[in-house]
Measured scan of single mutants.
Amino acid sequence: HNGKLCKLKGIAPLQLGKCNITGWLLGNPECDSLLPARSWSYIVETPNSENGACYPGDLIDYEELREQLSSVSSLERFEIFPKESSWPNHTFNGVTVSCSHRGKSSFYRNLLWLTKKGDSYPKLTNSYVNNKGKEVLVLWGVHHPSSSDEQQSLYSNGNAYVSVASSNYNRRFTPEIAARPKVRDQHGRMNYYWTLLEPGDTIIFEATGNLIAPWYAFALSRGFESGIITSNASMHECNTKCQTPQGAINSNLPFQNIHPVTIGECPKYVRSTKLRMVTGLRNIPSIQYRGLFGAIAGFIEGGWTGMIDGWYGYHHQNEQGSGYAADQKSTQNAINGITNKVNSVIEKMNTQFTAVGKEFNNLEKRMENLNKKVDDGFLDIWTYNAELLVLLENERTLDFHDLNVKNLYEKVKSQLKNNAKEIGNGCFEFYHKCDNECMESVRNGTYDYPKYSEESKLNREKIDGVKLESMGVYQILAIYSTVASSLVLLVSLGAISFWMCSNGSLQCRICI
């Protein structure tokens, strides 16, 4: 991952900044910058967002509201009850120091605090018919004063009620008058409520006091790749198909172990950190130390980045220098085999997901714990399936590479015959000098055995068991695999060879 928040398929997220979902939807004055928000790819909250409900109280069923919003990608904020005409018999300019803005008392931008007009609070009834052709999110509140005197001074009615009804919602609220500790300079409380109004449905408000009335509502448009994440990451000019709280993932790998919460087309989250597919040879310690064997393909974004291909070729060293050249036929066979294998694994496992966190309130801790156990169970199954699949494929890959290298080895052996000696570690020792032209003939299969047989015969008789390297004779190393990324691999195959001279070296080696 890149540690950044990015656009998702070209669409920017909605960053709530210092506000949370509650503050944004109710219209906390400190969240005025969010009022123009219309569309987004996903919503970003920060872990310690401080601006929620400015007048103390709870947004009821907040967790369910977050779940609903996680599939919303755009909205239209509109005046559901026009301020100047909807409440002619009531005062609608209630403000509070708890919702101060720029040093002055204020109130929510989407709600109206209705109080008595003169000395009376006549029963009010108002309704709205949803003609938007889509779901409408309606929010309101109920004020709970701290004393009967406060109730009387604001609403005149000691036994007030609030009723809200639609086809799918029907509740009646009565204020709970009680002494409470002071929070944000208030002994009173406000509880906030919401409902989704279906197209064509009607919502009716009736009250004799204590109503925090809707002013603006939201017509919602769903987008199934949307979601809500909690993150401290910063926004950058970048684009992605998959976003996590820790950063964007741009990967076609089937798995990731970065974060379980994802938005967009994302690899499946697994616990494993070692889900690797081999593309090189079986481990040979001396070669492995030099980083030549054991190439791997990573299938977990965050564990290993991208696929690494092994390729086969020849390396030689003689009086004229040293050089490398790919054996294109065996390399292409290996590439085709690995590509098919990788595609097979991805096809089997690479279903892209959006995974969002589930919200539970403080009273639902047991449910949250149960949900976590269920999620953990599914996660263990996914991890096991992934590891088992790759384990089985790896064994076949190792066998496949062994065969490829063996074929190259036999190709060289059949040409050199007794003009060189096998020394048991995949290397041959020449009994004759071999210049670049000679080396090329070994690589392309045109090695002239009779041409060098007499010199080889004489050297075999002279050496008589002495280690060949100390006599200045020449080696050919018969097994060799270097490691390159897919891009470098293609470039390498396009070149005939490249040279690395070893000044004054008397050794001649050709490596497979």
Rank of each mutant, 00 (worst) to 15 (best):
T331V: 06
A484P: 01
R282W: 08
G310W: 11
S481G: 12
C511K: 03
V405K: 09
M235L: 15
N425Q: 08
D327M: 06
Y449N: 12
E368A: 14
A355W: 14
K268T: 12
E469L: 15
G291L: 03
T397Y: 10
S486E: 02
M500C: 02
F293H: 07
N371D: 10
D435P: 13
N503V: 13
N369L: 06
Q352H: 12
S344D: 02
E265P: 00
L490P: 00
A334H: 06
C427D: 02
T351E: 00
T244H: 09
V491Q: 00
G445F: 08
T262C: 12
G494V: 04
D402E: 15
C427N: 05
N459Y: 02
R509G: 05
F299G: 07
K348I: 15
N385R: 03
K411S: 10
T262K: 02
A297T: 06
I287R: 15
S497H: 01
N369E: 10
D464S: 14
N340G: 05
L493A: 10
F400G: 14
I287N: 01
K358V: 11
F299A: 10
R290W: 03
G264F: 05
L416Y: 05
N436A: 08
C511Q: 05
R276M: 05
Q288P: 00
H432Q: 09
K413S: 08
S492C: 02
T446K: 08
I300G: 03
V270W: 01
S251N: 11
E237G: 13
Q352W: 00
N362E: 12
F255I: 04
K411T: 10
Y409F: 15
D375W: 06
W311M: 11
H315A: 08
G321T: 09
Q320G: 07
E437S: 09
S497R: 00
K421L: 13
K274W: 01
Q328D: 00
D375H: 02
C242K: 02
D435Y: 13
N333A: 10
P254Q: 08
I463R: 09
E237T: 13
G426P: 02
N252F: 11
N252Y: 03
E429R: 08
A248I: 05
F428A: 01
V270D: 01
V405D: 05
V374M: 11
L458P: 14
L490C: 05
E368H: 09
K413D: 06
S330M: 02
R509Q: 15
H401N: 01
M277I: 09
R509E: 10
C242A: 01
E410W: 07
G247P: 08
Y480R: 03
V466M: 11
I423T: 10
T354H: 10
I258D: 00
T305R: 01
H315I: 01
Y324G: 08
M439L: 10
N239P: 00
C511F: 12
N503G: 04
I263R: 08
E393L: 01
D448G: 01
N361V: 06
E393M: 09
L468A: 09
M235G: 05
K417G: 14
A325I: 13
F428R: 14
H315S: 03
P267L: 00
Q256A: 05
N369D: 09
E319G: 11
K413C: 13
I510E: 12
I463W: 00
F255S: 08
P450W: 04
Y314L: 05
N336M: 03
M277T: 08
I476M: 15
D464F: 11
Y449K: 04
E237K: 00
E359L: 11
G504T: 05
V345Y: 15
Q317L: 12
Y449G: 13
K411Q: 13
F428N: 08
A495P: 00
F498Y: 15
V491N: 01
I496P: 00
C511H: 13
E319D: 15
Q317C: 11
G264L: 06
L363G: 04
N283E: 10
T397C: 09
Y474P: 08
I249Q: 01
W311N: 06
E368L: 06
V374N: 02
Q352P: 04
H236N: 08
V473L: 15
L458D: 01
T262M: 02
L392Y: 13
A355K: 11
N444Q: 15
P260D: 00
L408S: 03
I423Q: 12
G465C: 00
D399M: 09
L275V: 06
F430P: 13
F428V: 15
D399G: 08
E440Q: 02
V412I: 12
H432E: 05
I512P: 01
T273Y: 08
H259S: 15
A233S: 04
N252I: 11
F378Y: 10
N257I: 06
V483M: 08
E461P: 09
S414C: 10
Y269C: 02
Q507Y: 01
A326Y: 08
I512N: 04
P254Y: 03
V483I: 13
I510L: 14
L487C: 06
V488R: 02
L489G: 12
Y312I: 05
V374K: 08
K457Q: 08
N419S: 07
Y289M: 06
S251G: 15
T339P: 02
S485E: 01
A420H: 02
T354P: 12
F378S: 01
T244L: 11
N425R: 12
S330L: 04
G303R: 05
L408E: 08
E455S: 10
E359Y: 11
S286Y: 01
V356C: 12
G280E: 08
Y324V: 04
R396D: 13
G291Y: 07
K433M: 08
L388F: 14
Q328I: 15
C242N: 09
A295F: 05
V442D: 03
G357W: 04
F293E: 01
G291I: 01
K406W: 06
L506D: 00
R460C: 01
G247E: 14
F428Q: 06
G321E: 05
N257T: 02
M367L: 15
E455A: 15
Q415I: 13
A495G: 07
K365T: 09
D309H: 06
N252R: 12
Q246Y: 14
L490R: 00
E237W: 06
W499T: 06
K467L: 06
G303S: 08
R282A: 03
K413N: 13
G303N: 13
E387R: 01
G264R: 05
L370K: 12
H316I: 13
C438F: 09
V405F: 03
S322W: 02
S414Q: 04
K372Y: 01
S414W: 10
V342F: 03
C266G: 04
E461T: 11
N394R: 01
K433F: 11
E429T: 13
I249T: 08
N419G: 08
N340D: 04
Y314S: 02
P245Q: 10
M277K: 05
N419L: 01
S502T: 11
S470A: 07
M307C: 01
G504Y: 00
L489F: 12
L416S: 10
F378R: 06
T331E: 05
F378C: 08
M235W: 03
H432C: 13
I479Q: 08
A334K: 06
L487F: 13
G264H: 04
Q415A: 13
W382E: 10
K372I: 06
A325N: 02
Q243R: 06
G426Q: 13
S414H: 01
E364V: 10
T305G: 00
G280Y: 03
Y289D: 01
M277V: 00
T279I: 10
D376T: 06
D448R: 12
V412A: 13
F428M: 12
I512V: 14
I335D: 04
L489M: 15
S470R: 15
V278K: 06
G303K: 05
N340Q: 12
Y449Q: 13
G302Q: 07
Q507A: 09
C434S: 11
Y474Q: 02
R282K: 13
T351D: 00
R366F: 09
H316F: 14
F428W: 01
Y480P: 12
S231E: 00
L477D: 01
C438E: 09
Y452K: 09
V270H: 02
S414A: 14
F299M: 06
C238P: 03
V278Q: 11
K274V: 02
I346Q: 05
G313E: 08
